[in-house]
Design a protein around this nucleic acid. Structure first.
Lengths: 164, 164
DNA sequence: TATGGTTGCTTGCACATGCAACTAGTGCCC
DNA sequence: GGGCACTAGTTGCATGTGCAAGCAACCATA
């Protein structure tokens, strides 16, 4: 079971360790998504919808410009529009116009939205603990987070900007 | 910038470190997918399609049962059916009936499919190196892989089984 | 050999999402 | 002030995917 060095190949082979590294990343991310989905589905939420609610809840004023929300959630602008449409139709978020700029509109978390998040969050976190953070020793988890943060800084630098 | 300990909250707050940990995982995975997509799109391949081709190429006989392929790729059975349909329509894979069991059919990589993979692989690996493996020190990458493997063993244990 | 349960794969349908095109608002520069 | 490039957000369209249902093949049991 090779971990880093290419076995015998000199050219990029099908078992290139870099290939398996990203494959591992994707497998874990996809599997985690599947493990977490049922909890959210119980509240009628898709993963991306829950993520948006969480991000709004973390924000000063519980509101975010559509564009910032899209970038943070890794969605396209149209995806954000439709997603907020759905949440708005269920009364979990509202749209508020920006006073200083007629183009922008804010998505703002409603009390109902906050309630749903509060309801789902405990079991959600427990599931994370069960399948992800709880699987690793604390120092190993810290190493994992550090490594992922380092990658994110390169690959997705605009992750947290946009709080306005 | 807290890393692990909850700031002041005792109950599961919106900034729970476990929440941010999975968030980090998803952010990196999504961002990597976006970085890798253009290379594959140049060959007319979606990420999932490329993954299937790679997995077939890694397999003895370059063939996999539909069900195993679905499980390995993290797809539903119907998703695998349609994906193989697309690849078959382009001549990159073929379907072969199983002799001993009339229900199962194998997806088998064609020479054309092998050619496409060989064509895309070098630039694909280079992009991985650029945005993922190359960002980290070798020992840090090893720690990352170890941690992800440990998580995968829990969360997606049937990742590699089904070679026959 | 006939029957009921199970498995492997495929289709009907619903749906979330991205891309491209469009509209409306902003700011710049002449 | 008038036009012009740019930005923010929304829609038409295409597409990939999952769920549920369907169908065919297999197997166990009598």
């Amino acid at each position: 079971m090779p971990t880093t060095q290419p076995t015998t190949e000199t050219t990029t082979g099908r078992d290139d360790p870099r290939l398996t590294a990203v494959g591992l990343l994707f497998e874990v991310a996809n599997a985690m998504e599947r493990r977490l989905a049922p909890d959210l589905a119980a509240a009628g939420l898709a993963g991306s919808e829950f993520e948006v609610l969480i991000r709004l809840g973390r924000t000063e004023g519980a509101s975010l410009r559509m564009a910032d929300l899209a970038r943070q959630a890794g969605l396209s602008a149209s995806g954000a529009t439709r997603l907020v449409d759905r949440l708005q139709a269920r009364g979990l978020v509202e749209r508020r116009a920006c006073e200083s700029d007629g183009r922008v509109s804010y998505a703002v978390l409603t009390d109902a939205g906050r309630g749903v998040v509060a309801e789902v969050l405990p079991v959600h976190v427990a599931t994370i603990e069960r399948w992800y953070t709880g699987v690793l020793a604390p120092e190993q988890l810290e190493q994992l987070n550090d490594a992922l943060r380092a990658v994110r800084a390169e690959v997705h630098p605009d992750a947290e900007q946009g709080a306005s």
